[in-house]
C-alpha cells in the first residue's frame, strides 16, 4: 500500500496529542455544560476536533505517493533536545559559568564540522561573553558559580 508519510505522520501526531489531552480531561477535569463551562469544557471540545482533523489528515495521505526526505540528523536531535534539559538541571547547583561551558561544548558537536579545539575556544569565548553581558553588564540575578562549585572557585575568583 502506498501512503504519504508526511500526511500520515502529521495526522498520527495530531491524533496522539488529541487523545492525550482528551483522556486527561475526561479523567480529571469537570466538563460542565455550554451554559456553565467547567475547566474541562474547552479542552474536550478542542481535543475532539483535533482527533477528527488528525484522522482526516491520515486518510488524505493514504494512496498518495511518498516524498523523499533526507536522513534524520540523529546526533543533532539528541544534542539539541538534551542541552536545554542539562541547562535546566544544572543551572541552580553549578551556576551560569560551568553550565554554559558544558552546554555550549556539547552543543557544538551537533555539527559534524566541529573540531575539539574550535569547540573549546567557542564555549570558553561564549561563556566569558555571556557573563560579561548578562551578569556583570545587565545584573541578571544569576550566580556565576553555584553552591556546588563555589568552594573551589572562591580562592581563584573570589566571592561572586
Amino acid at each position: 500500500m502506498t501512503f504519504n508519510r508526511s500526511d500520515v505522520g502529521a495526522g498520527a501526531i495530531f491524533v496522539g496529542i488529541g487523545l492525550f489531552f482528551g483522556l486527561m480531561t475526561l479523567y480529571g477535569l469537570d466538563i460542565g455544560t455550554a451554559r456553565r463551562m467547567g475547566p474541562g469544557y474547552f479542552p474536550i471540545v478542542l481535543s475532539g476536533l483535533l482527533v477528527v482533523f488528525g484522522i482526516t489528515t491520515i486518510l488524505k495521505g493514504i494512496g498518495h505517493e511518498d516524498v523523499e526526505r533526507g536522513p534524520l540528523p540523529w546526533r543533532g536531535i539528541a544534542i539539541l533536545l538534551g542541552v536545554p534539559v542539562i541547562f535546566g538541571l544544572l543551572i541552580r547547583p553549578l551556576g551560569i559559568a560551568p553550565v554554559l561551558l558544558v552546554t555550549t561544548f556539547i552543543t557544538s558537536f551537533a555539527s559534524r564540522r566541529m573540531s575539539l579545539i574550535v569547540a573549546l575556544l567557542l564555549s570558553l569565548g561564549l561563556t566569558v561573553f555571556c557573563i560579561l553581558v548578562f551578569v556583570m553588564g545587565l545584573g541578571l540575578p544569576l550566580r556565576i558559580f553555584g553552591p556546588l562549585v563555589e568552594p573551589w572557585t572562591r580562592p581563584i575568583f573570589g566571592v561572586r
Binding site: P84, F87, I96, T103, T104, T107, L126, C130, L140, L142
Partner: peptide, 10 residues
C-alpha cells in the same frame, strides 16, 4: 548555532 542555543537558554 551554539551561540543561538546559549542565548536562548539564558
Amino acid at each position: 548555532f551554539p551561540a543561538i542555543m546559549a542565548f536562548a537558554a539564558i
